[in-house]
Amino acid sequence: MAYQFEFADVFAYWPELLRGALHTLVLSGLAMVIGMVVAVLGALGKTSGPRWLQWILDAYIEVIRNTPFLIQIFMIYFGLPAAGVRLSSETAALLALVVNVGAYGIEIIRAGIESISKGQIEAGKSLGLRPLQIFRYIILKPSIQAIYPSLTSQFILLMLNSSVCSAIAAGELTAAAGDIQSRNFRSFEVYFVVTCMYFAMSVLFWGAFAAIERAWLRKPSLR
């Protein structure tokens, strides 16, 4: 007997799916913004911080880049309570995503910083700018411009990776999907729809990244 596709059973759960998708968007968006701050500060520390800080950052980056994301989530959600820090599944998911994207982001932005020529920094010094002013007004924006495609790809990966957060029931789209298919037994239909929704969210983020590039990266920028 041929399988009968039954999408009506999925669309009955539309509000739940939308809530899950919105959750994914907010969770990933927040993680991107906070992760960006971590990445910029970390890259600054790695390129011009004291030795001990560089060492700590190296350890952080290597641990994160060489362990599974799922285990990182478990460490934060199930491991931290042992150290007396109990987080809600939402907060744990956000923290895990930030910690993860931060490590990759530091390395990406550091590569951008290292692409800036020595002459730029010397010009800044000669004008009497101080080291942090040179970083903020001369190095930062061209660095981000140089590595913008890698950075945005990493952010898309982060959004897709957020589906792993369903493992701690963080209430995002994949968790919602799991919930629904356990009730209507329409796993193929549910995951097919969810696939389309992830794809649509990726397109949405790519669009946002392109808009940011047009509005900020290519425009005069002295504030």
Binding site: G119, Q120, A123, I138
Partner: peptide, 25 residues
Amino acid sequence: MVFQSFNLFPHLTALENCMLAPMKV
């Protein structure tokens, strides 16, 4: 100081290149 390789800031316009240090320094 004027360098052989100009070293203008690529993300700033000519005008902004000239305004940066007077404003920030």
